[in-house]
Design a protein around this nucleic acid. Structure first.
Length: 536
DNA sequence: CTAGGGTTAG
């Protein structure tokens, strides 16, 4: 008989069973209750401590107290403590108590691997559905989907959790056909059953199918809504994400965080901050946490305004949110991008551990702000500390060489990137090198590099060559680069203006005139503010 | 005792 969803933990079986087990008394059950509530609240060490205290005070623990203590051991995690409780279980004669033995097997499967857990399971004279579910999830955690399926097929009893486990196992592995086939056979479904299918489709990028299940489910949990929101933002569809978010009745912290992160990650910093401001209103019923601020800081960094940084830091102080390494790194990036290098260095030196991301952020900051020597020093320090650079690190480092006009060094760095560090240059790296070569007057070399690129050059690459041609008055490369820019970004007036300037300086008036006519025809001439440059 | 959601940064 199916249990209604809301009744999930409404009737802990302990009341009836405890009564039959414990010969004397209420003192026993209050110990058990205390241990359980500590374990459920995540206060694992306290739970184990209470269990030890119970033993010391001469109380005989019941199997349920031991099970709660074992659960806490798994979460600490501590194998010796679990082994100690295991010893007691034998002394107390709980060897054949299903509840205690299942808890024991489960803790061993988490702390000591499959074999130790198997031994316990095999020695159990009686297994119930929870024991079987535990075996199933053990196989799942080990990534043994085939073995899990065999367990599922052979288990003598199944409940909705068994079905959910196996369905979400297939869904996580990306085998949605098998997942759907089993889902259709389920004798009973709860929201988690649908959530498993939904996140499976989302992982494969199939929002259409995810949406179908979402629409079709009779009762949606917050998990369902949040999965859909993050699913949509992960594939760049912020509009649909907001649509879902907007319809959500009780928005919890996770919902707000996933919406704000979604905006920040999709280049919508204003919307991210707007949502944050809405979240801050008292009637939202939630308070921003570290994850909220990590996304908000990222949004501020995209806006490149130093005042946002100061505001957000003050706001975090107000809420008593302390800066962990994640937040510090986000702030390093923010201050780097708006010229606040002093504060960026301060935050950087306060990191508990400097990692790839924090080094990359500060190196880029140095690169942008003309502190090339610092960038080079920091890169060396990074290597000394055995932190491996990646493509993003080299964007910062090459930016530094470019800013300093160090052609030889920049070229060497570009080569060592693939040769020594085994990192394939991306189109962005090429753009920086083309800019560096071009600005120094090596237009031919820059052009040859573009021709040798293994990927299609984007407008940044051709734009760099165009700018260099303008600087050095080279009509031939200028026209060639401009043609490609026009093709890639026909609505961008900046490239026309660069070519026009090049013509004018070379005295090619008739060509300049023809270009102006072309711009007028495209309706581009009326834009005086150079839209390709960010206003300060 | 078992299943289902959000990770932040370059």
């Amino acid at each position: 008989m199916p249990v209604p969803w809301t009744a999930k933990r409404a009737f802990p079986s302990r009341h009836c069973r405890l009564a039959s087990f414990s010969s004397s008394s209420s003192s026993l059950s209050s110990w058990t209750q205390a241990i359980r509530s500590a374990a459920d609240l995540g206060r694992s060490r306290r739970a184990v401590y209470l269990y030890a205290h119970m033993l010391r005070s001469g109380c005989r623990p019941d199997p349920f107290a031991a099970a709660a203590a074992l659960k806490a051991c798994a979460r600490i995690p501590s194998k010796p403590l679990a082994a100690a409780i295991h010893g007691h279980l034998q002394k107390l004669g709980f060897d054949s108590h299903v509840y205690a033995q299942t808890a024991l097997a489960d803790v061993y499967s988490k702390l000591d691997g499959l074999e130790a857990a198997r031994k316990i399971f095999d020695g159990m004279p009686v297994k119930n559905v929870v024991s079987w579910n535990s075996i199933l999830s053990m196989r799942m955690r080990a990534g043994e989907l085939e073995a899990a399926r065999r367990v599922f097929d052979e288990m003598p009893v199944r409940d909705v959790i068994s079905w959910n486990s196996i369905v979400s196992g297939y869904a996580k592995a990306g085998d949605m056909d098998s997942a759907a086939e089993l889902f259709d056979c389920m004798p009973e479904r709860n929201p988690a059953s649908y959530n498993g299918m939904i996140s499976g489709y989302i992982n494969r990028g199939d929002m259409g199918m995810a949406r179908e299940f979402f629409e079709e489910m009779p009762v949606r949990s917050n998990v369902s809504w949040i999965a859909m929101i993050s699913g949509y933002t992960r594939c760049g569809d912020v509009a649909s994400a907001w649509d879902i978010f907007d319809q959500m009745e009780k928005k919890d912290l996770y919902a707000w965080n996933s919406m704000i992160a979604g905006y920040a990650q999709n280049g919508c910093p204003r919307e991210a901050i707007q949502s944050f401001n809405r979240m801050r209103k008292p009637d939202s019923g939630v308070e921003a946490d570290e994850m909220t601020f990590a996304s908000v800081i990222s949004a501020c960094s995209q806006l490149g305004n130093l005042r946002f940084g100061l505001w957000i830091e003050e706001y975090m102080r107000l809420l008593g949110i302390e800066l962990d390494d994640h937040l510090r790194t986000a702030l390093v990036d923010l201050y780097s991008k708006c010229g606040g290098m002093d504060r960026a260095f301060e935050l950087f030196s306060g990191l508990r551990r400097r990692d790839l991301v924090s080094y990359s952020a500060i190196i880029l900051g140095c690169g942008i702000n003309g502190r090339s020597n610092d960038a080079i020093k920091l890169f060396q320090k990074m290597l000394d500390e055995k932190v491996s650079p990646n493509a993003a690190t080299f964007v910062g480092l090459l930016t530094a060489y470019n800013h300093a006009g160090l052609v030889e060094e920049g070229r060497r760095c570009f080569v060592s990137m693939s040769k020594k560090h085994k990192i394939a240059p991306s189109v962005d790296h090429y753009a920086i090198i083309v800019d560096l070569l071009g600005r120094s007057g090596r237009l031919e070399e820059a052009y040859q590099l573009i021709r040798k690129m293994p990927m299609q050059p984007h407008v940044g690459v051709w734009g760099a060559l165009l700018l260099a041609s303008r600087l050095h008055g080279n009509i031939e490369f200028g026209e060639l680069a401009a043609r490609n820019c026009f093709k890639l970004k026909p609505e961008e007036s900046g490239y026309y203006l660069l070519l026009a300037g090049l013509y004018a300086e070379a005295g090619k008036w008739e060509k300049a005139k023809r270009l102006r006519k072309m711009m007028e025809a495209k309706g581009l001439y009326k834009m005086p503010g150079c839209s390709w440059v960010e206003p300060a």
